[in-house]
Computed example of a mutant assay.
Amino acid sequence: MFKGVLLGFACYAAYAISDAFVKSLHGTLPAYEAVFFGAVLMLSALPFIRNPDDRYVDVFRAKKPHLWWIRAITGAICNISAVIAFTALPMAEAFALIFLLPIFVTLLSVIFLKEHVGWRRWSAVIVGFIGVLVVLRPGFRALGVGHLAAMTCGLSGAVSVVALRMAGPHEKRISLYGAGVIGPLVSGGLLMAPGFVWPDLHQWFLLAGYGLLAGLAGVLLMLATHHAPANRIAPTQYSQMLWAILFGYWLFGDRLDWPMLIGIALILGSGLFTLVREERVTGWWKRTRMV
Rank of each mutant, 00 (worst) to 15 (best):
184 P>D: 04
184 P>W: 07
184 P>Y: 10
185 L>W: 00
187 S>R: 00
187 S>L: 15
189 G>V: 13
191 L>N: 01
191 L>V: 06
191 L>G: 11
192 M>S: 14
193 A>Y: 14
194 P>T: 05
194 P>V: 04
195 G>Y: 14
195 G>F: 12
195 G>V: 05
199 P>S: 10
199 P>R: 04
200 D>S: 08
200 D>W: 05
201 L>N: 10
201 L>F: 14
202 H>T: 14
207 L>V: 09
211 G>L: 07
214 A>I: 02
214 A>W: 11
216 L>Y: 09
218 G>P: 05
219 V>I: 15
220 L>M: 13
223 L>A: 12
224 A>G: 10
224 A>M: 09
225 T>H: 09
225 T>V: 15
226 H>F: 02
227 H>N: 09
228 A>G: 06
228 A>H: 07
229 P>A: 03
229 P>K: 08
231 N>F: 09
231 N>D: 02
231 N>P: 00
231 N>W: 12
233 I>L: 09
234 A>P: 01
236 T>K: 04
236 T>H: 10
236 T>A: 12
236 T>C: 13
237 Q>W: 00
237 Q>D: 05
238 Y>R: 06
238 Y>S: 01
239 S>V: 07
239 S>G: 13
240 Q>M: 15
242 L>M: 15
243 W>C: 08
243 W>F: 15
244 A>N: 08
246 L>P: 00
246 L>F: 15
247 F>C: 09
249 Y>R: 06
250 W>E: 10
252 F>L: 10
252 F>W: 11
253 G>T: 07
254 D>P: 06
255 R>I: 12
256 L>N: 02
257 D>M: 03
257 D>R: 08
261 L>F: 07
261 L>N: 03
262 I>R: 04
262 I>Q: 03
265 A>Y: 00
266 L>S: 11
266 L>C: 11
267 I>D: 08
267 I>A: 07
267 I>V: 13
268 L>I: 15
271 G>H: 03
271 G>Q: 01
272 L>C: 05
272 L>H: 08
273 F>S: 14
273 F>Y: 14
273 F>Q: 11
274 T>F: 03
279 E>Y: 02
280 R>T: 06
284 W>K: 10
285 W>R: 07
285 W>A: 13
286 K>I: 03
